[in-house]
Amino acid sequence: MTDGTKFILFLLLSSSSLCFGSDLDIQCLRSLKQSVIDSNGVLNSSWDFDNLDRPSSVGSICRFIGVDCWHPDENRVLSLRLGNLGLEGPFPEGLQDCTSMSGLDLSDSKFSGPIPYDIAQQMPYLTYLDLSNNSFTGEIPQSITNLAYLNVLKLQHNQLSGQIPERFNMLSRLTTFSVVDNFLSGPIPTFAHVFSPLYFTGNRGLCGAPLDECPRSRKWRLIPIRLRRINEESSIGAAVGFVLGFVVAFYFHLFCSKRLLPCVFRA
Rank of each mutant, 00 (worst) to 15 (best):
D181S: 12
D181A: 09
N182Q: 09
N182V: 10
N182M: 00
L184Q: 06
L184I: 03
L184E: 11
S185G: 02
S185F: 01
G186M: 07
G186H: 00
P189I: 08
P189E: 08
P189K: 07
T190H: 04
T190C: 00
T190E: 07
F191M: 14
F191D: 01
A192H: 10
A192F: 12
A192N: 02
A192C: 08
V194E: 08
S196C: 03
S196R: 11
S196M: 12
P197K: 05
L198E: 15
Y199G: 11
F200W: 07
F200I: 05
F200K: 01
T201D: 12
N203Y: 02
R204F: 08
G205F: 02
G205M: 02
G205T: 00
G205H: 00
L206S: 02
L206G: 04
L206N: 02
G208C: 05
G208N: 05
G208I: 07
A209W: 07
L211T: 04
L211D: 00
L211Q: 08
D212Q: 12
D212L: 06
D212K: 08
E213Q: 14
C214Q: 06
P215R: 08
R216I: 11
R216Y: 03
R216G: 11
R216H: 11
R216Q: 14
S217V: 13
S217Y: 07
R218Y: 15
K219G: 14
K219R: 10
K219M: 13
W220T: 06
W220E: 00
R221Q: 15
R221D: 14
L222C: 04
L222T: 11
L222H: 10
I225S: 05
R226E: 11
L227D: 00
L227G: 01
L227I: 11
R228F: 14
I230M: 04
I230R: 07
I230F: 09
I230D: 04
N231L: 09
N231M: 12
N231K: 14
E232P: 07
E233V: 05
E233Q: 10
E233H: 06
S234A: 11
S234D: 05
G237T: 11
G237H: 04
A238K: 15
A238G: 03
A238P: 02
A238Q: 05
A239S: 06
A239D: 04
V240F: 14
F242H: 02
F242W: 13
V243N: 11
V243H: 03
V243F: 13
L244S: 01
G245T: 01
V247G: 04
V247C: 13
A249V: 01
A249P: 01
A249E: 09
F250D: 05
F250K: 08
F250W: 13
F250P: 01
F250C: 08
F250T: 13
Y251E: 11
Y251S: 12
Y251H: 13
F252M: 10
F252N: 06
F252E: 02
H253S: 11
H253K: 01
L254C: 06
L254I: 12
L254Q: 06
S257M: 13
K258Y: 14
K258A: 09
K258N: 13
K258T: 10
R259S: 14
R259G: 12
R259M: 10
R259Q: 13
L260Y: 15
L260T: 15
L260H: 15
P262R: 09
P262W: 01
C263V: 06
V264L: 12
